[in-house]
Amino acid sequence: MPVVILECRGVSLHYQGGDGAAGREVLRGVSFTLKAGERLNVVGPSGGGKSTLLRLLNRFEDPDQGKVLFHGKDLRTYDPLEIRRRIALTLQTPVMFDGTVRDNLLRRPRERRAALTEADLRGALEDVALDATFLDRVAGELSGGEKQRVAIARVLLMRPEVLLLDEPTSALDPVAAGHLIETVTTLNQEKGLTLVVVSHDLNVVRRLSGRLLFLAGGEVIVDAETCASLEHPTHPAVRDFLAGSLP
């Protein structure tokens, strides 16, 4: 039976307004568990707290209330650098640094860069369905889908246990988006990589299947199996979202 790898217990977070302005509560009493090897879709209207939730999971933010547990231990007891290696995050817009794809894959703290071999780099590209010829291509000249794959390959080299993807297909055409989802599903199924994917695109969510966490107004509205939740939505907020009346 898969073990619980991540757990949110009553997590709340608010962003303080600038210059004494009133703060905004982004997450409110969020609770869920994530088992090793699961695929979790985080879905919901804009401003619902989806991306903030991802940022909590790799310690870009810390909760005001509640706690996030990783392997049963409070995330705050871990070294943030260790957490970011074990729970990797890729951003909505992949950032490519100057130089080639190889330079980008090697862009990491010195002690970790030294441990990477040519085979590691080729293996990481292979994992994201790119061949070794990409290693010497200029990263800035790649297509959006290729950049997103390189960004995923770059974090895969850290050998994470959990991969957090923030809107990975938002800038991709449907074909490229489909290929990317196929790639990350393969990573999940063949390598047992636990996935948490924030997406607006319901096609992407359906293809990824797994579990669905519907967040609205910073609260978990639905936590259930993805396909069933989308085919037979029971909550009005989910129905509105599917009908396109929620942003």
């Binding site: 650098l81 990797a88 951003l91 950032v95």
Partner: peptide, 12 residues
């Protein structure tokens, strides 16, 4: 985005 990417890659 650049700073966040570097942090996510494990840079202090």
């Amino acid at each position: 985005p650049e700073v966040e990417t570097l942090l996510a890659l494990g840079f202090p």
